[in-house]
Design a protein around this nucleic acid. Sequence first.
DNA 1: TTAAACTCTATAGTAACTATAGAGTCAAGT
DNA 2: ACTTGACTCTATAGTTACTATAGAGTTTAA
Lengths: 138, 138
Amino acid sequence: MKISEMSKRSGCSIQAIRYYEKEGLITAPARTEGNFRLYGSEEIERLSFINNCRALDLSLSEIKHLLELQSLPSTPCETVNVMIDDHLNVIETRLADLQKLQSSLRKLRPRCNSKRSIDQCGILEALSPNSNHSVSDG
Amino acid sequence: MKISEMSKRSGCSIQAIRYYEKEGLITAPARTEGNFRLYGSEEIERLSFINNCRALDLSLSEIKHLLELQSLPSTPCETVNVMIDDHLNVIETRLADLQKLQSSLRKLRPRCNSKRSIDQCGILEALSPNSNHSVSDG
DNA sequence: TTAAACTCTATAGTAACTATAGAGTCAAGT
DNA sequence: ACTTGACTCTATAGTTACTATAGAGTTTAA
């Protein structure tokens, strides 16, 4: 199986596969005489695993860590649990930040309408430092 | 006023100020004999404006656009309104994506506990392609 | 005068790829 | 045999908005 079929089967783009190889997440595969990468079907699993982890927004270094753990079957899996917990915390912090942003933008939006000109624009006014309707205010 | 005071007054880091200059968001200021940047107090306003926009996560190119509009006071401000609306949409999409992620991670988390070993880890199993408890499933 | 604090430019690094150029490889059709 | 098109290769640049660093010069206070 060459790289394009691997790409389709694993869900990773061709460039991503080459990138993962370069970063050491997968081992360099055999090559054809013409220097094309040649994969066996067992590689699909590893790449799909990576793809699943990426779907959860785990970083490549976290994924690398998970892959290393998989080669130590009798290790306690606390690390995995902690990683997921930490990641959940990161996501929750990001969510809270975005929600604040959303709220700021929603408050900003009705300050203007399309009938005005720039010098009367309530949005620009609110973004200006001398305004008493600041972005961070309620 | 030299750059460090400007930094304190505007809320932008020194490097960020130099970067904004390089990117054309602010004009290059006068220099002292010793080649230090010298700002007047009117520059605070522009940098604070940029800082306020960044707090809303507007991109530098969007901010540049807003700054250009400010020099055309009689232009209709529809562009500003559209930009804020578009930005709200972007934020809302990101929020929805993150919420899906959060939900996936929350479902994944209870599949394992710290007493297990890697080969019994329900989290790793769920991340593996042959699993019937896939990441994207409910 | 000298040391600390500040500033300068230029460059590399960040994360995880995508996009591109330029070259080589392979399979099918004529 | 030849050509064409699809595929693959490596290497490099680009993405975003900075931060960090090196190495050099400037200013200020003691």
